[in-house]
Design a protein around this nucleic acid. Structure first.
Lengths: 232, 232
DNA sequence: AAAAAAGTGTAATAATTATGACGATAGGAA
DNA sequence: TTCCTATCGTCATAATTATTACACTTTTTT
């Protein structure tokens, strides 16, 4: 499952993917060769269903997902999972708490499909940040953005009623469009909201009955955007 | 309310406080004079009840609270507020999303008492980070820790029942001790959990009836720690 | 194509929480 | 002290959501 450090010989070569990742994409062309020289990493492969990151475990490395997609989840008191996020390659993983004093992962990351990750030790990340200013800025910007994302998530969960959560979610998902396709199953949306699936569907159908929206499986039409906005 | 940049002459001199703030405390003694020279800032004073940061507004500066204490809140659909955090001087404010692409504050920050803040423009923060490695590391570490904090908060809110939230909260607040004093009023704890106060008290009294805890106003004794742990 | 798995919609019942109102009590201010 | 205010504990009622179970459809796998 794991390859050695300094193994730049496998195929496909990871550097192709690494520089597509938002953390590294800003490294200027003329510095990339040096960057790859300075980079210390190992490669790990995972099966569908594998846990890349386990909640509560210590992480001393930066993970960059270069193939596949994962979801991050948080377990609640009954062992049910709330979905936190959905990450597709190429993107970093577990970057936010790498430099925290308690660098245990608050979430678990589970592979939806076979995945590959580049694993970079913390000290090397630190070294790269000092040497490559663009990398430092990108890293900063990335965790700042994660912070915004988490705040948004917190806001979603903190809305008291399913109705309000749904309004919030639909307004964001629609991205202004009148009709669109849901990116997740209702089961998954329910987990995103941290509510039960039947309750979610019930509220959704109520909204449909009130002609605020129209729903057919994953297809949604927003009929009364103002009504949705009024719910927040 | 606002003083000019380069105003190093007011009293009390802010540098005393600034270097007590976790962001700057790691700057070595011998670099502090230079650091103060490089620092560009203004001073702002606030009354009790003032809003230092408003949800949704753009922030292009780092705020360091050098006097007073504030709470950060998030409004829900009915205009009620969920408490997010409680920050006392000297500590940074709004540092987490300063470098985010959408650097609007996800929360509002409200003064509980008269407050003073040092306001440092983003570019200057960036400049200082490049020049003072210790500052950069502290900044990174700080937002990493904020990230952990937000995750914890998310976990708290995502627990489905008040019972579970309370168990989680008590275990954390007790810090291992058998008896302790609550740091917040029950009203405030309810807002922290994003639930109603009567519901919180009801659950608390149920736990007391089951002899899991004993409560008298702010004094709490944990009688059955294992039972609390089982709720998570 | 058949079988399996995942997703969808519904309903009755139980459990949990919100709402709004009330009196009691503690601690600070005048 | 006495008043005032914040906090506390309680309650009945209403609203919301969870639970569990079932029938059905679509998609994926074999």
């Amino acid at each position: 499952m794991e390859r050695q450090y300094f193994d730049h010989s496998h195929s496909p070569h990871p550097s192709g993917m690494i520089f597509q990742c938002p953390l590294c994409s800003s490294v200027p062309e003329d510095q990339r060769e040096g960057f790859m020289q300075d980079l210390r990493f190992s490669i790990k492969n995972y099966q569908k269903g594998d846990m890349i990151v386990t909640r509560g475990a210590l992480y001393e490395s930066l993970y960059i997902l270069i193939r596949g997609e994962i979801v991050t989840e948080m377990a609640d008191e009954k062992g049910d999972f709330m979905k936190v996020d959905h990450i597709t390659a190429p993107n970093p993983l577990a970057a936010g708490f790498l430099f925290a004093s308690n660098n245990r992962s608050p979430v678990s990351a589970i592979c939806k499909v076979p995945c590959t990750a580049v694993v970079i030790p913390k000290e090397n990340v630190y070294f790269l940040m000092r040497k490559y200013e663009s990398f430092m800025l990108a890293f900063l910007s990335y965790i700042s953005n994660r912070m915004s994302f988490l705040s948004e998530k917190l806001r979603l969960v903190s809305l008291r009623t399913i109705r309000a959560k749904l309004a919030y979610y639909l307004l964001k998902e629609s991205a202004g469009a009148q009709s669109f396709r849901l990116g997740s199953s209702k089961e998954e949306i329910a987990r995103l909201f941290n509510v039960s699936r039947p309750a979610l569907i019930k509220v959704m159908m109520e909204m449909a009955a009130e002609e605020i929206i129209a729903v057919a499986r994953r297809d949604v039409v927003i009929r009364d955007r103002a009504a949705l906005q009024k719910m927040l």
